[in-house]
């Protein structure tokens, strides 16, 4: 293995290194950081973001963006809460269905109406947010506790939180799709040059369509988890989720302009953001200093910047660093 290759790998997996460093820091500093309860609750809580970021990752790899994921998740949570009295299946179907509808609208706007993804998904974001408030009657909608719906968000599979298991399965599937199917490789080709891909005879519109639909469904699923976990459909949740998702994707080494990226490092990006948040809470708990939510935001922003700059430096590229290892 030559050094260029090694640096490429460090660049790609830099987020994993940063994650490990953060975990070590937490372990050394806080007594209960690696305790069973804390670990499980971090995993449970961040599963929603992981699902949203997975969809975002695929959209970004095609060179697009999906700004609607946050409000689609909110809409999904309201829809699933409303359907929850009819059982788990109904709740899940309603939430994912709402996401599917939003995803279809995005897909049609982007591939048929040829709107820029930024504009198309911005419109859907506003529409989904309004629909969520309308459906919910401007307040949160309590879920049914009798139908077993809350198990999705609150239950365990053996000792693991069910939402975390769902997210993990989704990432494994996503990773296989990206690396071992023509759909996945076409996603990357489109991001690397849409016109060229079309001239190469690839079905660019079909793949883009799929990607926006998938992102919508995953956001809907995240909404189901949200409602189930907190016992209510939350029409005003999800604000800013799209930005966290973009941050996780970018920290995970995916090129923001598309054409290069990785699924599993996106998961690492999600965990990095989640654990940073967790550590700041611990820090407040220690009582030395008290960080307001605003300061927490500032610190998270700075940390992200440091990780991104570090990776850019390592791979010798400015601003972004494509994961140049192209496929297995």
């Amino acid at each position: 293995m030559n050094s260029a290759r090694l640096i490429g790998i460090v660049g790609t997996y830099g987020v994993v290194v940063a994650l490990a460093a953060l975990v070590l820091f937490g372990f050394l500093r806080y007594e209960r950081f690696l305790g069973f309860f804390n670990v499980m609750s971090v995993l449970r809580y961040n599963s929603m973001f992981a699902l949203v970021a997975l969809g975002m990752c695929f959209v970004i790899m095609t060179g697009g963006i999906d700004l609607s994921v946050g409000s689609v998740a909110a809409l999904g949570s309201v829809a699933s809460a409303l359907a929850s009295p009819h059982g788990i299946a109904a709740g899940v179907a309603a939430g994912v269905g709402a996401g599917l509808a939003a995803g279809l609208i995005n897909a049609l706007l982007v591939t048929r109406a040829n709107l820029m993804p930024f504009i198309a998904t911005l419109a859907t974001m506003l529409a989904a947010s309004g629909s969520a408030l309308l459906l919910a009657g401007n307040q949160s909608v309590s879920v049914s506790y009798d139908s077993g719906f809350t198990a999705i968000g609150q239950g365990n599979f053996w000792i693991f939180p069910i939402p975390a298991v769902i997210a993990l399965v989704a990432y494994v599937v996503g990773s296989v799709v990206l690396n071992y199917t023509s759909t996945g490789r076409t996603v990357l080709a489109i991001g690397g040059g849409e016109d060229a891909s079309r001239l190469m005879g690839l079905r660019t519109d079909r793949i883009k369509f799929l990607v926006y639909v998938a992102s919508g469904c995953l956001a809907g699923l995240a909404g189901v988890v949200l409602a189930s976990q907190f016992g209510a459909g939350q029409p005003i949740e999800g604000v800013g989720w799209e930005l966290s998702a973009i941050a996780a994707v970018v920290v995970g080494g995916t090129l923001l302009t598309g054409g290069s990226g990785s699924v599993m490092t996106t998961l690492a990006g999600v965990l990095l953001l989640g654990i940073l948040f967790n550590i700041l809470n611990f820090e407040n708990g220690l009582g030395w200093i008290s960080l307001s939510a605003y300061w927490q935001s500032v610190i998270r922003g700075l940390f992200l910047l440091v990780v991104v700059l570090l990776q850019a430096r390592l791979t010798g590229r400015r601003g972004s660093w494509p994961a140049t290892t192209s496929g297995p």
């Binding site: 990357l188 080709a189 090129l255 192209s326 496929g327």
Partner: peptide, 12 residues
């Protein structure tokens, strides 16, 4: 040359 420079030769 309408190919995708970011992707591997094999993929192209």
């Amino acid at each position: 040359i309408n190919l995708v420079p970011l992707r591997s030769v094999t993929e192209n």
